[in-house]
Design a protein around this nucleic acid. Sequence first.
DNA 1: CAGTATCCCTGTAGATACTG
DNA 2: CAGTATCTACAGGGATACTG
Lengths: 127, 127
Amino acid sequence: MKVKHYVDVPGCPVEVTLDLIDGRWKGVVLFHLLDAGCLRFNELHRRVPGITARLLTKQLRDLEEADLVSRTVYAVVPPRVEYRVSEEGESLRPIVEMLSKWGEARLERQRTKQAATHARRTVSRNS
Amino acid sequence: MKVKHYVDVPGCPVEVTLDLIDGRWKGVVLFHLLDAGCLRFNELHRRVPGITARLLTKQLRDLEEADLVSRTVYAVVPPRVEYRVSEEGESLRPIVEMLSKWGEARLERQRTKQAATHARRTVSRNS
DNA sequence: CAGTATCCCTGTAGATACTG
DNA sequence: CAGTATCTACAGGGATACTG
């Protein structure tokens, strides 16, 4: 169990939140669960390419422990495990949406900048 | 230079944003810069207790490279270096504010739950 | 004041193989 | 299908000492 010393940083609840969606993957996992409502392990895995099963498992366990995601196991063959956001996880929706929107805008800005740079280069070539 | 393969994860701009405020400290640093407007290195250091100078430097360099923070050096003795959020960093304000608000609410929920647990324990002791 | 330089250690994550 | 197990490697970050 990872208990941190938030006593040291009384003025920064930002850290509390970031700690939960930390590590590059958790936010993405939440995003997809919020988007899809409910996903089985491999469905989720397909939506988060690049992550290994081991790591995805760990992220899900962390999110579960943080009470942001719930895990339901059905006793069938083949196994069926469903993940969905908890009520507390649901309350993160606006944040995750803003993160997504901002990320899109950032990518757009980068594309624009790159295009501008390319244009300038082309111009200077012609001058 | 850290260039990531976002080609792999086309559907998730959440990752783009999280990548920038990743790592437990960057969000906190941004929070304080957004809050204070402008801070010198040691002023900032005082507001982020627990971080080493080395690491704070690294976080600031990363934020600078991401174009979220600007760094101004004054050629005086003793040295004076000021950090402030860039225009792009400023656009993160609503997100950082939500992270902060949500973190506060979460802490509040935890306190409430803990108090309830304690009360129950006390009751069961008396019964 | 605002950092570097060095050393070292741990955790995090990748690859691969295996299982109820 | 939904994961574990094991081994390994590297980078992130801590402690400490030093500097323009």
